[in-house]
Amino acid sequence: MTKKINGFFGIALLLVFANGCKDDVLPKPASQLRLDYPVAKYASFSNHCPFEFEMNDDAIIKEDKNCGFSIEYPKMKATIYLTYKTVNGDINKLLRDAQKLTYEHVIKADDILEQPYINNGNKVYGMFYQVDGNAATNAQFYATDSIKHFVTGSVYFYAKPKFDSIMPAADYVKNDMQRLLETIKWK
C-alpha cells in the first residue's frame, strides 16, 4: 500500500510541476487604436482675400463669409476655423477678444502655453496657443500686422475631447496650424 501511496503522490507531484510551468494567464490591458498619418505636404493657398498661407494638401478648404475659412480634416474629424477682420483702430479690442477666446478654455485645460510669433520681414505678429487637457480646442492663434489685418485660427474636433486618445490627430493638426501661421503673408 505504501507503493500505491508513493506512486499516487509521485503522479500528483508530477501534475503540480507540469501545471506550474505554464505561463500565468493575465488579462490584456486596454489598448488604443494606433493612429499614423502621412507626412504633411503643403501648398500655397491664395484667392481674393487680403492674405495667403500654406495649408496641408490632404485638407479640404471652404470659404465662409468675409474671408473666413474652414479647413477640414475628414479622416480626423477636425476643422481649423480661420476668421479675418479688418483693423479699424481697434487692435486692442481684437487682441483682447482673441485672448479671451483662448482663456475661456482654462476651465477644462491643464495648461495653456503661449508662443509669440514675430516675422518682421512679412510684418506678421501674433501668438500661438497650445491648450493641453480635455478642452474643446487644443490650439489657437492670432496674427496681425497691427494696422490693417487681423486673423484668428482655432481647431475643433467632432468628438468628445479626451486628450490622450486624440493626441496623434491633435498634434498633426496643431503642426498644420503652426505652419499656417508661419506662412501668412498680407497682400
Score class of each variant (00 low, 15 high):
A59P: 04
K4A: 13
L26Q: 13
S44P: 02
A169P: 02
E52A: 15
E72T: 14
F141L: 01
T86H: 03
D176Q: 10
K77F: 14
M55I: 08
D171R: 14
G133V: 07
L181N: 07
P38L: 06
D111R: 09
R179G: 00
D64V: 00
N56E: 11
E72G: 08
K148G: 06
M76Q: 15
D111W: 09
K148T: 15
D110M: 10
A12C: 10
Y142W: 04
A136E: 12
R96A: 11
A159L: 12
I166E: 13
Q115G: 00
Y125P: 02
N88A: 06
A109N: 07
A78L: 10
D145Y: 07
M167V: 07
I5H: 09
Y84Q: 02
K22W: 11
M177P: 04
N120I: 05
Y158H: 09
L113P: 01
D24I: 10
F128L: 10
D64P: 00
N88S: 06
K85Y: 07
Q32C: 03
S146E: 15
A12K: 02
F157A: 04
V155Y: 04
H48W: 01
S70V: 03
S165D: 12
I11Q: 10
N175Y: 04
E114T: 09
M55N: 03
P161G: 11
G7Y: 15
D58C: 00
P27S: 14
N56Q: 06
V106E: 15
N120H: 07
A159I: 11
A136T: 11
E54A: 05
G68F: 00
A170F: 01
Y156S: 11
E182Q: 10
F69D: 00
D110Y: 12
F45T: 02
A135G: 07
S70H: 14
L94M: 11
K187S: 05
F141M: 02
Y125Q: 06
N122L: 06
P27A: 13
S44D: 12
K28A: 14
A170G: 09
T2I: 12
D176W: 06
K85N: 08
S44Y: 07
F163Y: 13
G20F: 14
Q178R: 08
A109V: 06
C49H: 05
L15E: 03
A109R: 03
G89V: 05
Y125R: 04
V25D: 14
G121E: 14
L15N: 04
I71V: 13
T137C: 01
E63T: 08
V25M: 08
L15R: 02
K22F: 14
A59R: 04
A12G: 08
R179T: 10
N175V: 02
V155K: 00
H149Y: 12
K187F: 06
K108F: 15
I184G: 00
K28L: 15
D90A: 02
A30N: 15
H105V: 02
K187W: 00
G126L: 05
K65T: 09
Q140A: 09
P38R: 08
P74C: 10
F150P: 01
T152R: 12
P161L: 12
K185Y: 01
L94G: 08
K108H: 12
D58Y: 05
M177T: 05
T79H: 11
H149D: 11
S154D: 12
K187D: 08
S44V: 08
A136H: 06
Y125F: 15
D64E: 10
P74Q: 13
I147T: 15
P74N: 12
C49Q: 04
